[in-house]
Computed example of a mutant assay.
Amino acid sequence: MTKRILSMFIILTMLLTTLCGQAVFAENSNDQIEISSFDIIQVDAEKVAALFLLSDVVNNQDSQWDSSCKISITTPLYDLDNNVTAYECKVVKDVQEKGYIIISASSSLNPIVEFSYESTTPANYMDSIIASDSQSSAEKKYYLGNQQYFVGIKDKNNKLEFKSILKNRVDKKEHEEIF
């Protein structure tokens, strides 16, 4: 068992070292450091999610996933500047959803942003919001950190609005005031 844990740790370390390039930072006028590089691509995020899934199955006695679970659909999530900030990797067992893993698109941040053993993913919630609004068209799915998920919807006048999976619709001005 110890060899198995050690080998999983070595594999995860090697993968993260390979995937994580040099992070780029910029200082703003307040001398705060900001991330200015989203450098993880989707295929690499899927590999990180698969390794996390495997590691959780092997090392976590309380894991609700098992060895037959796999990553099925990966959804890119954007910030308000249209940068991919994270990827939602859906976990399935056969055809049944078994949760999700959110992977950061920045190598300077922790790769695992959040995960859940629950079957409903944030993207599923966003898809239901899109389906319920037949007068509008979906723009993109947004993740602004700290479980703040939004879907961008253009109304019939082509005005972009944001709808939270937790709140009612807010327009862009209200959204910028909140965040």
Rank of each mutant, 00 (worst) to 15 (best):
M1H: 06
T2W: 01
R4P: 00
F9W: 03
F9Q: 12
T13N: 04
L16R: 09
L16T: 07
T17C: 09
L19I: 15
G21L: 09
Q22T: 14
Q22Y: 08
A26R: 15
S36H: 06
S36Y: 02
S37F: 08
D39H: 08
I40S: 02
A45K: 06
K47S: 12
K47L: 13
V48W: 04
A50V: 03
L51D: 01
V57P: 05
V57L: 05
V57R: 06
D66T: 11
S67E: 14
S68I: 05
S68Y: 06
C69S: 11
K70Q: 09
T75A: 03
T75L: 02
T75E: 05
L77N: 04
N82E: 13
V84M: 03
E88I: 04
C89V: 02
V92F: 03
D94M: 05
Q96I: 12
Y100Q: 00
I102E: 03
L109Q: 15
I112K: 05
E114M: 09
T120D: 08
P122Y: 08
A123N: 04
N124R: 10
Y125V: 06
D133P: 00
N146E: 10
Q148F: 04
Y149H: 11
V151L: 10
K156V: 14
N157K: 14
L160I: 14
I165Q: 04
K167E: 13
D171N: 15
K172Q: 09
K173L: 05
K173A: 12
E174T: 14
E177K: 14
F179Y: 14
